[in-house]
């Protein structure tokens, strides 16, 4: 048993969280904390439980055992929607927007449903919209946008809920290489303008190394390493966890 991360200033914290589906344990005894305005990257091979971690932290799934705490308070049984109201907001690996609505309608809905007072003409929001190429396409149906733009729209919708904690599930997946630096601007804006903490699940190792001062490695539903990227990525067990995957070379470079 690992002790829960002893962090008094943790904003969001998973304490010895496990998840079983039937007899199948996908997630075993994971403890992880996210500090104030901290950016933490979570990496691991496919099937390591990264999305399960986000599902549990966001309230989409209830853990079989363990607690989730928000600023010290237990939120384990609190639903996805209620947690969103408390400021814990997740994004999705796939493009997730309201497909029958225009870009602008989608942005308005995000703001309205969350009850946030954040306006989409806030300069930094407009800058992100512009960067994503969405400012010129406010009246386009979200369904008709290229994949990358839909993905970025989903990310900006999350900003408009004015989150205190943002959980990003593979934000760069499906983006063109040139679009990936959008994620850098995006995360910087979230931390700078909203003072939010960010947990980021990602396969793009370059992106993780650029953005995250601290990373955690999941493998087979267990947290096998945690610390600064350079240190963690040079560990033998971490490299072994990745053996045979496409990210091996990235790791060797670290």
């Amino acid at each position: 048993m690992r002790d829960p991360a002893p962090s008094g200033s943790a904003v969001l914290q998973a304490d010895n969280v496990s998840k079983r589906f039937g007899g199948n344990t996908v997630f075993a005894d994971v403890s992880l904390s996210l500090g104030d305005k901290e950016i933490v990257g979570v990496i691991g091979p496919n099937g390591a439980g990264k999305t399960t971690l986000i599902n549990i932290l966001s309230g989409q799934l209830e853990p079989t055992a363990g607690r989730v705490r928000l600023r010290g308070g237990d939120v384990t049984g609190v639903s996805l929607a209620k947690r969103a109201k408390l400021g814990v907001v997740r994004t999705f690996q796939q493009t997730k927007t309201f497909k029958s609505g225009t870009v602008e309608e989608n942005l308005r809905r995000a703001q309205m449903f969350s009850g946030s007072n954040l306006r989409m003409d806030e300069p930094y929001v407009r800058a992100l919209l512009d960067r994503a190429g969405l400012l010129a396409r406010l009246d386009h149906l979200s369904d008709t946008l290229p994949y990358g733009m839909q993905k970025m729209l989903g990310l900006i919708m999350a900003i408009l809920t004015k989150p205190g904690v943002l959980l990003l599930d593979e934000p760069a997946a499906g983006l063109e290489r040139s679009e990936r630096f959008f994620i850098d601007d995006y995360v910087a804006a979230v931390v700078r303008e909203l003072g939010a903490s960010v947990l980021l699940v990602e396969h793009d190792m370059e992106l993780v190394k650029r953005l995250c001062p601290r990373i955690a490695v999941l493998d087979g539903g267990r947290l096998i390493a945690e610390g600064p990227p350079a240190e963690v990525l040079s560990r033998r067990d971490v490299i072994e966890a990745y053996l045979g995957t496409a990210d091996e070379e990235d790791l060797a470079d670290a």
Binding site: Q60, A81, A84, K85, T97, F98, K99, S100, R109, F113
Partner: peptide, 16 residues
């Protein structure tokens, strides 16, 4: 919104 995409609607704070 719930009818169109329940997961997104809930993630944005709508209590289904």
């Amino acid at each position: 919104a719930l009818s169109e995409d329940r997961a997104v609607a809930e993630a944005l704070g709508i209590r289904a």
